[in-house]
Nucleic acid binder design. Structure first.
Lengths: 241, 241
DNA sequence: CGGGCTTTTGAGCCAAATCAAAAATAGTGG
DNA sequence: CCACTATTTTTGATTTGGCTCAAAAGCCCG
């Protein structure tokens, strides 16, 4: 009985928040049944918008980012399968940043109106959405530490450790190996370094036997080694186990 | 009729979120009636805690921060009057960072149990608390841009502009002048620079006629000039007006 | 008026930026 | 399946913003 389990990443992720009953899971399945496909570098939401749907990543990578007057870009979050892109916009009224895909992606669009009804009717889901939003903020805090106080090599190592932990939590990493469809320039815009310097650091990590990265796949060869280099402690992700 | 208006900073701040009825304001007044006084550098909450109260700053400055293995410290938020320190901990289960005062401060302690009852009974307050949490995250995103992509001088200029806007929103800044009880070392731990370098930048800002800063007071002499140097755009604060 | 912070100054150094160009990869259409 | 482009990665050389270390000067406060 080699059954293929088609996991819904949203369910897999939110299960770290609260115990979800079959009924809650069914609601999430229904919500994410309709999806759209987008190519890489498609802008889902732009700064100032108040989009009529909540976007949820089902596959692929997206990111939050801001563009500076001088053309520079700072990526402020990687959105991986299961992540909500703009849950908060109803409360804040307008996006203070843009969201775009980093790779070809599948996105679910939840009508914003329906959300309120759902959270009223399913308190566990309301709680889970809250949790997801707060974990987003916790990740942001750790990224701030990363940029403020860690040298380049540790920054990148830390980010790789985090990504592995997050993807593992949604069942999307095996044996330290995962999709990683970003360019080195994307990575540079994430960690606040130049693309050239990122390139040299990545080479160092490769030569140290810590990672293998080619054609959109990243493999952590020595998880313990990379975590200790990065000073990684996953507690800020607030995952189970 | 020179009436002295004793403003409650929590009310002043949350009024930017939703229209608060007299009833809601009365609840906030009652909640923040009881306060404790703390000296500078008192640790309110430490990493891993799940404190039994929600702390709210009434006067003085506090901060969120993490300490690194090498002794380095990264400040991840300045908590000014009206700010909640640990609203989120009930959902996440444990603090992923510490909170401490930066100056002598007055704090209100709201019993965590009471919170749920209040938000159930006063939807406008529930909404306002949500808003405050999301604005916190928006500020964090802007700080990430600050550390990732702006050179030292702009970083500090931007932070000063933000502080002015926030304090003005709670009625705590007049004519570009405000309390600023931090040391240059605190500022350095906020912007991810060394204290020595912060000192040199502050001197540059002074010599450029942009700021005046002594004995715990900061005055922005040329708001427009500082904002244009920093590339400051206040929309991420989601304030009215 | 003396001791502990905090701010300031100076000198030397290093991580990371910039600029420029070559090599490798990945797409695309014929 | 191959040539032709465009993007991405890599290398090298040079510059610079910001760091470290160390010590002096200024301040605050009992």
């Amino acid at each position: 009985m080699s059954e293929i389990r088609v996991r819904n990443p949203v369910i897999a992720k939110l299960q770290h928040a609260t115990a979800l009953r079959a009924e809650d899971r069914a609601v999430l399945e229904a919500l994410t049944a309709q999806a759209i496909e987008l190519p890489a570098h498609a802008e889902l939401v732009r700064e100032g918008d108040c989009p009529p749907h909540v976007h949820v990543v089902l596959s692929g990578f997206a990111c939050r980012y801001k563009t500076l007057p001088d053309g520079g870009r700072q990526i402020m979050a990687w959105l991986t399968p299961g992540d909500f892109c703009d849950l908060h916009v109803a409360v804040l009224g307008a996006m203070d940043h843009a969201v775009a895909t980093l790779s070809p992606s599948r996105l679910a669009l939840l009508p914003r109106n329906g959300m309120e009804e759902i959270t009223d009717r399913h308190p566990a889901l309301a709680r889970a959405f809250w949790w997801a939003t707060l974990v987003d903020a916790a990740i942001l805090r750790e990224w701030l530490v990363n940029l403020g106080r860690r040298p380049g090599e540790q920054r990148i190592a830390h980010l790789f450790c985090e990504l592995l932990a997050r993807l593992r939590a949604t069942g999307l990493a095996e044996d330290g190996e995962m999709d990683f469809p970003l360019t080195q320039a994307d990575l540079a815009d994430t960690v606040g370094l130049s693309a050239v310097h990122v390139n040299r650091i990545v080479q160092d990590l490769r030569e140290a036997g810590l990672i293998k990265w080619r054609s959109g796949r990243l493999r952590i060869l020595d998880v313990a080694g990379l975590e200790s280099l990065a000073g990684f402690n996953p507690s800020y992700l607030h995952l189970l186990r």
